[in-house]
Simulated scan of single mutants.
Amino acid sequence: MRKLKVIEHISLDGVVQNSADGDGFPYTDWTAPYRTPEGRDALLAAHGERFDLLLGRRTYDIWAGFWPKVPGNPMADRLNAATKYVVTHRPESLEWGPVEALGKDLVEDVRRIKAGDGPDLVLSGSSTLTSPLLEHGMADEVLLIVYPALLGTGKRFFAEGTPAQAFELAETRAMPSGIIVTSYKIAGPLPKAEV
């Protein structure tokens, strides 16, 4: 069975947004000052040599406008080669392939993909998909790249109302730039306190 790893770049206050998206977000590309060769290597290792992508439509469109135009880059080569499973209402306009459009039932589609053959899946940049996948037990691991920045505004990693979850620390690593890379295994629902 294929595993699903959620990888997110995140601020200390839980913001994952990195571009304006038409909503006036003021801190476009706020992760740039912290990028280092060591961080790049850690991110490449976290993704692995081969993987497929699970993406929301907005992330797909942003990445499709960038990664195919980056020649000779190890991350670009891996992302371009990956099959992109895209949650979208406009499947006819998917050009960056290999690609497969997913329908209205995200959980059932992800369950089908995970049961099939192929490399593990990486979900990145699509904050609206994270909460429902965690709620239905579809994610196996969460890897957070935590930046030493407080943004105060922007899209958050977990949506309000996401069911409580327990996580087990798998690994953590501090980078000289101040970034902390932390990997968690999903432990399941968080038990409620007994009254």
Rank of each mutant, 00 (worst) to 15 (best):
K155N: 10
M75T: 09
R156K: 13
P98H: 14
M75A: 15
L169P: 07
T162C: 13
G154I: 05
T172Y: 08
V146S: 01
P148K: 15
E160H: 09
G72M: 02
A115V: 08
V107E: 01
V87T: 12
N73T: 02
S131L: 11
H136I: 00
L143G: 00
P132Y: 01
V122L: 10
R156T: 09
V107C: 04
A159D: 14
L123R: 04
L143F: 04
K84D: 01
L102D: 00
R111N: 08
I145R: 00
T88S: 11
P91D: 08
E92M: 06
V146T: 06
E168R: 13
A139L: 08
L123N: 08
Q165S: 14
A81Q: 07
V146C: 04
I145E: 04
Q165P: 06
E171C: 08
S127P: 10
P148S: 09
D140K: 03
S124V: 15
L144S: 03
T153W: 13
R78S: 08
Y147K: 01
E95F: 11
V99F: 09
T172I: 05
P163T: 10
L169C: 10
E135R: 08
I113K: 09
E95C: 14
G103S: 12
A115I: 07
T172C: 12
S127H: 08
P176L: 13
R78Y: 10
V110P: 00
A166N: 03
V87L: 10
D109M: 13
A149P: 06
E168I: 05
T162K: 08
A159Q: 13
L106S: 05
A174S: 05
V87K: 01
G97S: 04
L133V: 07
F167P: 11
D105G: 03
G161N: 14
A174G: 04
D117C: 02
D77R: 09
K155G: 07
G72P: 00
D105S: 04
L134I: 02
A149G: 01
R112L: 05
G137Y: 06
H136S: 07
D140T: 02
A164P: 12
V86T: 15
E108W: 06
P132L: 02
F157L: 14
R90L: 14
T153S: 14
A159I: 12
D117L: 03
A76K: 06
L123Q: 07
F157I: 12
R156Y: 07
V70L: 10
L106V: 13
G72D: 10
S93I: 04
T162G: 04
L151S: 06
E160M: 14
F158H: 03
A82E: 02
L143E: 10
E141W: 06
L134E: 00
G103F: 11
R78H: 09
G72Y: 01
P163K: 12
F158E: 01
A174N: 03
E92F: 07
G118D: 07
D109Q: 13
Y147I: 03
G116Y: 02
Y147M: 01
A81T: 13
